[in-house]
Structures are given as C-alpha cells and as structure tokens.
Design a binder for these strands. Structure first.
Lengths: 278, 278
DNA sequence: GGGAGAAAGAAACAGAAATTTCATCTAGAC
DNA sequence: GTCTAGATGAAATTTCTGTTTCTTTCTCCC
C-alpha cells in the first residue's frame, strides 16, 4: 500500500525545481511522521523559505498545507502498522473493532516483560491462599480469574461478595498470601486502601490495571498495564482476559502434578454428574 | 519501557482535576499519533476549553505545548519502543499464547457475517427486556454483557442468580423479550431447555457459543460461533468478549440519544459520588 | 547585452494557535 | 452562613504559521 501523498510527489518529482525538490525529499523522508511537522519546520529542514514550501503544496494539487496534513494523518491512522501486518482487512465497523482489539492485545502482551509474568506466576503458585479482587468493571475479570485458579489451588477467594464487608474478609489476609487485583478504570478509592493493607500484612499483590493508574501501582509486587480503551463506547478487556488466561495456565503448569491431577479429577466429577451438556 | 510522556501523565493522573484528566485520557488514547494534533484539537476532543489544555501541559512539567509535542515526536521517531514492538515477534510461551489469542479473535470476527451482527443488535435494541444467561465458564461473560447492557437498557436480568430456581425466573419470559445466551463448553443440559422455553414464549435468542455445539443452535434467532480453545490448559474467551463489546456498543448506538444520555448520566453519577478512584 | 520567464527569498499580511487574564463557579473549611 | 482555594471557560492577547506579494536572481534565447 502506498500513501496518496507519496504517489503525488513521485508523479511530479522530475519536474520539481531544486528548492521544492529539497522539501519533497524531506517529506518522503519523514514518511508517516509527516503530520507531526509544520510547514515552517519542513522548510527549515530543507533549508529553503516557507514560501517555497507553500508553492510545493500547491503544485502537488493541494489547496492548503492543512489539506495535505489531514490526508497524511488519515493515511497513517487507517493503515495502522498492525492492520498492514494482516493481509486482508475487514470492512465496516466490525473490521475497525477487530483491528482495535487485536492492537490492544498485541501491544499489551508484547509490552509485558516475561520476568514480570514469571514473578507473578511464582507468587501465585506458592501462595497458600489467593484473594481475587475486582470491583465494577473489573468484577467479571475477577470472576473469570477465580474460576480458573480454583481449579488448581485449594483456597481461592473472590472479593467483593455481596452481604459481607470487606474489612471482615480482609482481616484474614496474612503473610504469604497473594492478592490478585483487577484494577481497571473507574476504580473505587477503597482499592488503594486494600493495596496498603495487603502490603502491611506481608501479602504479595499481583495487579492488573490500565495505563491511567499512577504511583499507587508501585505498591504491588508485580504490575501489568493492559490497554483497555475500547474502539467505541465501552472499554475492551481482551488484553487482561488473555493475560489472566496465560498466567493461570502457567500457575497450573508450575504446580505440576498436583494441580493437574486436581484438574483431571474435577473434569471427571463433571462427567460423573453428567452436567456438561448437549 | 514507557514513553516519558505517558509516565508523566501517570505520575500526575490521580491528582488531576476532572477537565484536565479528560485531556489526559485523550492524550493517552492518541498514543503515538499525538504530535499530529494541535492543543486546540485535543481540547475539542476532550470537550474542554483550550485554557485547560494549556494548564495540563504546565502541570505535567512542560513549559510549552510545543515542548510536549517535541518530546512525543522524539519518542516515536526511529527505533521507538512501540515501533520495535510491532515488528519483533515475542519469543517463548507468552509469544505463542499471544499468537493463539490473536488468531482466535481474528478468525472469529472475520467469520462473523455483518448481517448476523446487525440482526443481533436489532433484536437486542428493540427488546423491552433482556435476559443474559451464562453458566459456569460462560458466567463471567454473562456478567460482563449484563454490565454493559444495563447501562443503556432499562431492564436487563442476569441468570442464574444464587438462591433462585431458574423456573421461577423464567416464567416471566415473554414474547418480544430477548435472551442473550452464552453457551460455551461444559454446557449444563438445562441450556437446551431454556432455549426451547424461550422459543415457545416467542422470545428472540442471541446465542454465543463455540463450534462444538450441534443442531441445538438452530433454535436461536442468531448464533455466533466463537473460537474458544486456548493455547494451553484453559479455554480462551477473548473472541466472545470482543464480540460482546462490539454488539453492546452497537446496541447503544442504535438506541441513539436515549441510551447515550443514560450512559452520560451514569458517568456523571459516578463523578458526583466520587467513586472513581485513585 | 537585453529581455522573457521561472525560481526563490524577504517581508507583509491574515489567520490560527497557544497563552494569559479575568470572572464565575464549586467544594470544603471554619 | 462566609470565606478561601482551586477549577474552569470566555475572551483578550501574544506568538507563530502559512500565504501572498514583491523584488531579486538566474538562465536561456535572440
């Protein structure tokens, strides 16, 4: 795929006067970063006057520098690098949504240091007791994580639960325990307190959150920042969901025979009771 | 490694006043496209005044918007961390996991006919009452879907709930209602019954399931088959999660002003109660 | 050599962008 | 209740960007 701008330049390149050609070169050189630059800067880089820049823009068929910049911007926004990686793009809003979620997933997991993952797996695997905590938007994620972990660890607790005060529950939190905290946007302030309580009690905290969270994250033993902005109205949690799946699977593998036996046994139980379906 | 700008924002994020935070959100959201935008555009996107934009820049420690833009530009230039991330594949198990989940997501959404999506959105949008149903592995998904829908529709019910028998609840199911059913592997047999009950009652059923489900799926109004086999021990639900996000957002858009007003109001309520956190 | 015509910079200009100022509003302290 | 401090937007102000105009330079051709 070629940017329309690039095409326009090549079409005129041979006929361009020296000064304008210098600017054209700068322009080609900048590539998709072009919209970050002003016409004045282009002229300076090329060592020509601003007037020459304007003339080039005109000659390429744009009415404005603004028009050129707009087009360059649109070109890089739509044909995002990730979109190019995959051969066929899906048209329509569904396609945009797909691109967006794939980006979230890819950028998040590629930005996750394997050491961090290993540390998280370690503290989760060795904890005698795990607390999975997630409020509001993070609650579904917490539920998911709990469902996975409970299959391989004996004592996994979900918070918050209806009809109980947090204080009551958390009093049992002790050294060696691990808290798996899901802290995505729209965080209730109590989350920060829990973090501190866990710290004080000597518990490890594995925190999944989004990039908007500040220093508080430093209190956690390991922090994963997952992109969670959605393509449209609602936030997208594919990245944390995927990460949780990975972490929990690694925990199971780390626990080895014990956990896997437990897993098998639970599958057998389902079979006996015939409660997997149709 | 994190962009210095992003770091600066995170460092201040919790202390930012509402207006400046809105801009910070836009800023984070734009990512490496930031330098293509003027401060005025940022302010417009965020729905705040230009003055607020300037103030945020100052608070983040820059003397100028220009200075901020420069830095953002430098960050994305040659050899930028993000650019590198996009190109290099991640080695190790994390990389395999990522590839797998991206495949699930891509294959599923590419295999989803837009007409089906449109039909699902239509029946969800026009239903006076929505029932979201998901057992076991599907329960977290159901919870998520319910959380989204309840923001834009007045009557959205989640099943199963503890302490209630299904029969009791389902007796209220009527013609015109829509059932959003999450039916992933390890389906309890009751799911088939619910499907038939809904049919009989004249309700529409939007069914998200995996490819392993047989003919029963034909009873649903619309069926989406989402890949859900995981790379490792546990099944992966990124595809249905993403699809739900898309469908719910489309429903909100289809409902237009009403729903969006409701959304805004609920955001405001959060703001009023100050329960978005740190 | 002189003139036509393109090319390019300098400066003037117009318009937009960013910052500052100022008045209003709100929440919290007392 | 009043008062203060911070947050905010509207408008004034300043700074800068992009375009236009005008002049100079250069080249090619007679």
């Amino acid at each position: 795929m070629v940017l329309p701008l690039e095409q326009a330049i090549r079409a005129h390149y041979e006929r361009l006067p020296a000064g304008e050609r210098k600017i054209a070169d700068v322009l080609l050189d900048l590539g998709d970063e072009l919209p970050a630059y002003s016409a004045t800067e282009l002229a300076e880089r090329a060592g020509v006057s601003k007037a020459t820049a304007t003339r080039l823009v005109r000659r390429l068929g744009y009415s404005d520098y603004q028009e050129l910049r707009q087009q360059a911007r649109a070109g890089t926004a739509a044909g995002s690098p990730l979109a190019e990686l995959r051969e066929t793009a899906v048209p329509g809003t569904l396609g945009r949504h797909l691109d967006h979620d794939v980006s979230c997933l890819t950028l998040t997991l590629k930005g996750t240091p394997p050491e961090d993952a290993a540390r998280a797996v370690a503290v989760l695997a060795r904890a005698p007791r795990i607390w999975v905590i997630g409020f509001r938007n993070s609650h579904a994620l917490a539920l998911y994580a709990r469902e996975l972990l409970v299959q391989v660890k004996p004592d996994v607790r979900l918070l918050p639960l209806p009809g109980q005060t947090l204080a009551e529950d958390l009093s049992a939190l002790g050294a060696g325990d691990t808290v798996l905290m899901l802290g995505f946007r729209r965080r209730p302030p109590v989350l920060a307190k829990i973090l501190r309580v866990a710290r004080t009690a000597g518990a490890d905290v594995v925190l999944l959150t989004d990039p908007s969270l500040g220093d508080v994250a430093d209190e956690a033993t390991v922090t994963f920042r997952c992109l969670s902005r959605g393509a449209s109205l609602f936030d997208s949690y594919v990245a944390p969901l995927s990460l949780l799946n990975y972490l929990c699977a690694e925990v199971a593998l780390a626990l080895g025979e014990t956990a896997q036996a437990k897993l098998r046994r639970s599958e057998q139980l389902h079979d006996v009771f015939g409660d997997f379906g149709f």
